[in-house]
Nucleic acid binder design. Structure first.
Lengths: 330, 330
DNA sequence: CTCCCCTCAGGGAGCGCTCCCTCAACTCTC
DNA sequence: GAGAGTTGAGGGAGCGCTCCCTGAGGGGAG
């Protein structure tokens, strides 16, 4: 059963292809009676325009690619916030009448496939999530002349972005701990190849430096296990530490358990603050104080920026502010 | 800067369009020297075939839609497993050389848009996630003559599916509690409009009935808050209950806190078993015993089934078995 | 040596749509 | 009432590709 074409609809309605096309595309210069007879035929035949044919001539696809560039055990797509981000993007595109092609680039080969796909004219623009500082994809995509917006700062200079205020968030966390009277505040970092990890670390460093305190840095990689491991090391280095700022919630959760096992009470002996405010942060005992990253808002803003870019608008970067959510752990 | 076309490549290589097309599509009947000269030209010009033009004539798009049909506060896309499922699907499609268009259908309007899109010939097949029993979308999509695979059983009879063994999983949970010597075993259900909630409840019921015990049913809706509320009611109804099987982990986590507040020790006084084995299940105190749903495997299986269907293969439903993961809460 | 067959490159139609251009039919102005 | 202007329908080219068909050329068999 073949789908009806414009031609068929035109024949049925007794008008020309052009008129049907005009009606379908909602052009103003169509007489009401022609519009009615065409709509009638469209309904009767269940006509839906063929996308490929339309794309071919208009050069628009109404489709945007969301490219997540990340190693297989990567932090992005494993992130508890991943689904929130994807949903926010999806909703925003839906309301703009656009479609979303999701591509996870987990290897050089798939990165190549992404490039090919983008070059194949399948999409009108790209929303890029590539946190790794050395990722070659941002630059590669920027070279194609297609609108690209990054979900964070990238090494490619000329890619517009919407980023979290990671440094400001870290500052918020550390100030909060200082205000609570903590004096020996350690941090557990994310993997330092990632911009956001470095920024959060920098925020921690700067805030401590302002008050003349000594930084204590444990290295993590955003996983729960790495948070636990880093906590053990930090405790061994300084058994007297009285606060930890973890660069994400998963690591904070990992450290909670280690602190418990080491006989420290949270928050009495050691205060803990995480980052991201994932849902699990409120399930822990004690519930975790965290920096809420407005990821959904960030996603929405990124989509807006991209759509604006596609319409030929300006490409001003956006920085999203964070918010401290105080719970039991501090 | 316009992208080069087949024509341009042909001119550069000094051969015909047809030959270039043959080389691009890897046909065997091409002389090596022609292949070389074409590949050379392709490389020099950075030629990538235009997708729309190709689709238009081949009627293939190498693109599959993943449609998640769910109300705005729906359970599916809020589910912690959502991202795992999406990633598994994405990987599987990537390795099959296909693309993924993700569509969230959250309203009647967007459901209509989905139908239109599917009818527009943009995709080769549809992977449908629609848990709601009354959802009209499965039937609507089944009417289009396009391969459709559902991620669970649907009300549309003729849609092939890959489903979890929900009943078997519930049975596993309840048997486990019985073996631990529990005698008053309550359950907290998911929203009963969902197939899977009903199946999990039925599994609970059947297993208890087999041993002549009385069922105690609290109604939830898969959210943590609803789990807490149901737990309060169950405790009020029967302060002596000694075990709870929650139809998902979020509700189990909600009930843990209520039990703690009510002065019950877990697992000494009341054992708790969840369902899904989300990551947060291992963060709780005590860590949660749960039924592990092999969601990623299910996703992979669904993709396989769909690809097989597209190739004209058979459409035999698949049921995925579950596994009991025993932790501290039981 | 001739004829036939087979291999493989080129030509060209056509996929379904948009959009430009033409032209018919009115309306308005003087 | 005639000419100019305006409105809106129809015709047809062409987007970039695939794929069928044609025909050139070479090899093998008789």
């Amino acid at each position: 059963m073949k789908r009806p074409t414009l031609q068929v609809v035109a024949a049925r309605a007794g008008v020309s292809k052009s008129s049907v096309s005009r009606v379908i595309n909602g052009e103003a210069t169509v007489a009401p009676e022609i519009r009615d007879v065409v709509m009638q035929a469209v309904r009767e035949l269940g006509y839906v325009p063929n996308g490929a044919a339309r794309n071919l001539v208009t050069r628009r696809t109404d489709t945007l690619a969301v490219v997540v560039s990340d190693p297989p055990q990567g932090v992005v797509s494993d992130d508890p916030l991943f689904s929130a981000v994807v949903r926010a993007i999806s909703r925003e595109l839906e309301s703009a009448g656009k479609r979303l092609v999701l591509m996870l680039a987990e290897s050089d080969q798939s990165r190549f496939r992404v490039e090919q796909y983008i070059a194949g004219g399948h999409v009108d623009g790209v929303l890029l999530v590539a946190l790794h500082g050395t990722d070659p994809l941002p630059a590669a995509l920027a070279r194609q002349d297609l609108p690209v917006v990054s979900f964070n700062r990238t090494s490619a200079q000329d890619v517009p972005y919407v980023a979290l205020d990671n440094m400001g968030g870290a500052e918020l966390a550390v100030r909060h701990l200082l205000e609570r009277g903590r004096r020996r505040i350690a941090t557990i970092t994310g993997p330092l190849e990632l911009h956001e990890s470095r920024e959060r670390l920098a925020g921690y460093r700067r805030t401590l430096q302002d008050t003349g305190r000594r930084p204590m840095v444990g290295l993590g990689d955003f996983t729960r296990a790495s948070g636990a491991q880093a906590m053990r090391e930090l405790l061994a280095d300084d058994p007297e530490l009285d606060a930890v700022f973890a660069a994400n919630d998963l690591m904070a959760i990992g450290s909670l358990r280690v602190l418990h096992q080491a006989g420290r009470r949270v928050p009495e002996d050691v205060a803990v603050v995480g980052f991201d405010d994932i849902e699990a942060a409120s399930y822990t005992t004690p519930a975790l104080t965290s920096i809420r990253s407005p990821m959904a808002d960030q996603a929405t803003a990124a989509v807006h920026l991209l759509l604006q870019l596609i319409d030929g608008g300006p490409a001003d970067p956006v920085i999203m502010p964070n918010q401290l959510v105080i719970r039991e752990s501090s």
